[in-house]
């Protein structure tokens, strides 16, 4: 009977391993998030940046802007300028224009990405329309600001970087009902 007792304990432990590995599968999600931010993988950028930096007048970096619609998105979406030249450490603002040409109110979410991906960790956004969801009424047009600082520690071999936004239609997930009365 000792035998069956130890079988029971063994099976309990193995089941615990199973549960732990199931949890580990989900833990991969935050682990991946942390890895992406730590190593700038996939050009993922961090959240809002609170700090300020002294301006490095000696150096110039070209920042290019891209605006793309995800599949099925019908808005007009573009930056006001294709490219600006900035000094690292300086705070710069760029406006993106969005227009909802459809007859329905719609909600959209912009996802930023920085290339080259190793520069992503050195690109700080102090203010960004990508932090919130955008609701546009039929025919409405808005200008959406992004304010950013290129870090003074940006590797020397990076002379220009690209900030790309992809705009996703999330109307089905977040119906723009609450904002209609605005």
């Amino acid at each position: 009977m000792n035998e069956s007792l130890s079988t029971r304990r063994l099976v309990t432990r193995l089941l615990l391993v199973v549960v732990a590995m199931f949890a580990f599968g989900f833990a991969l999600v935050p682990i991946y998030e942390v890895m992406c931010q730590a190593f700038g993988i996939n050009g993922k950028t961090a959240g809002a940046y609170g700090g300020t930096q002294a301006v490095d007048e000696q150096r110039q970096v070209r920042v290019q802007f891209l605006a793309t619609n995800a599949a099925g998105m019908s808005w007009e979406f573009r930056p006001q300028a294709d490219e600006v030249t900035v000094h690292p450490g300086a705070s710069t603002q760029m406006l993106f224009v969005a227009h909802n040409p459809t007859g329905q109110p719609m909600t959209a979410q912009a996802i930023p990405s920085v290339a080259p991906s190793k520069a992503a960790a050195y690109f700080h956004k102090t203010e960004c329309f990508c932090f919130t969801q955008q609701v546009l009424q039929p025919g409405e047009r808005i200008e959406m600001p992004v304010r950013f600082i290129v870090d003074r520690d940006l590797p020397a071999d990076v002379q220009h970087l690209t900030l790309a936004y992809t705009l996703f239609d999330i109307t089905a997930r977040k119906p723009p009902v609450a904002q209609v009365s605005r």
Partner: peptide, 28 residues
């Protein structure tokens, strides 16, 4: 026992993305 639960977690995340409005694998 180490990896089949991870597969189960993976398809569970898919299920949640498809039916319950989560965005594990959706950039949007």
């Amino acid at each position: 026992i180490a990896v089949m639960p991870v597969l189960a977690g993976c398809v569970t995340m898919m299920l949640m993305d498809v039916h319950f409005g989560t965005s594990f694998f959706s950039a949007a």
